[in-house]
Simulated assay, not measured.
Amino acid sequence: MTRPITWRPNHALTPGEQLHRWLLNRYPITPRKENLWIDTIASDFNLHSLEATIHQSTILMLLRRLITNAEWYRRQHVEKFEERFENDYLRHHLTFPPQEARAVSNLTFKALEASKQNIPQSTIKKMKERGEKRNTHCGLCGELINYHSSNPNDESRFSLDHIWPRSLGGHSDESNLRITHIKCNSFRQDYASAADTHYEHLHVKVPEGDPSFLLEANRMFRLAVNYQSGFQCSRCQLPLSRLPDGLRLEVRSRHESHNFFNSMAICIECKR
């Protein structure tokens, strides 16, 4: 089931994550009524995961909408923009009850403020030196990083990625940063999870042994499956940070092609 990724088990949530969690609690996924025909289809095509993905996608869309409109109100109304956002937008337009509108407004503007923070140069230097010393691999694909490269065309050079995206209210403190390739960071953009990227449309049509399999199962698709598994082996649960050889794609059912719902990320040992 697609879910928001639990990146750091013992960290303080960023403002954006707090707002995201509030929205998930406010708008939980609603159970379907029992239907034998639908349940039969669901068992074959994993529609329960599809429902969860659509739900997560909708929540993330609402989160983006709130932050974007908070910025719009801030620019349109220099005075009392928070009050206008709460009353005009949240209460009257989105019909939030007064108490909920106040809570959402506070969280949204905290997320907006966090989204404007740049990574301090001191943090960049500190994390780069520490990553080089520990030979830290890319936090997204698990491959080696070229810490010494200054070539702008080198896709393996060092970069810092916001774990919870900055545009969604992720602050630039060290606890919300990880070391990645510049290319992986660019590929990921500001997506929060697999549901945010609509990867449910991706399919790999050729079998795994076909020479063109790796071409079709490109990095974007592998990243999507890694998101779905929480960047850990789906079988032994070891995190990607402890797997020097990274993760590999594996189908859940041999009766179906590699696609978002029929693929999982496993380590080399579990794939043998």
Rank of each mutant, 00 (worst) to 15 (best):
E155F: 08
V104M: 03
K271C: 10
R219P: 02
L144W: 05
C270E: 07
C267D: 08
K80A: 12
R64T: 04
C233H: 03
Y147S: 10
R272D: 13
E143V: 03
L168A: 10
K33L: 13
T53P: 00
D161Y: 03
R75C: 08
R134L: 15
R252H: 07
R64D: 09
R21M: 05
C267K: 11
E86D: 09
A42W: 02
S156N: 15
S149K: 06
M220H: 09
S115R: 07
G170N: 01
P9G: 07
F85T: 08
R166F: 07
E250Q: 12
K126V: 06
E82L: 11
N118S: 08
N176Y: 03
H20R: 11
S212Y: 07
K128L: 05
S159I: 00
S212D: 06
T197V: 06
L36M: 05
S229I: 09
Q232E: 14
C184V: 09
R157W: 04
T108K: 04
P152G: 01
L90F: 03
T14E: 05
A195C: 02
R188E: 10
S149E: 12
L23K: 00
E208H: 10
W37H: 12
N262D: 05
N118T: 01
R222M: 12
L19A: 03
F45W: 11
H137Q: 13
Y191P: 00
K116W: 02
A114C: 02
H148V: 14
S167P: 00
H198Q: 04
P165Q: 08
L66W: 04
S186L: 10
E208V: 14
R188L: 06
I163P: 06
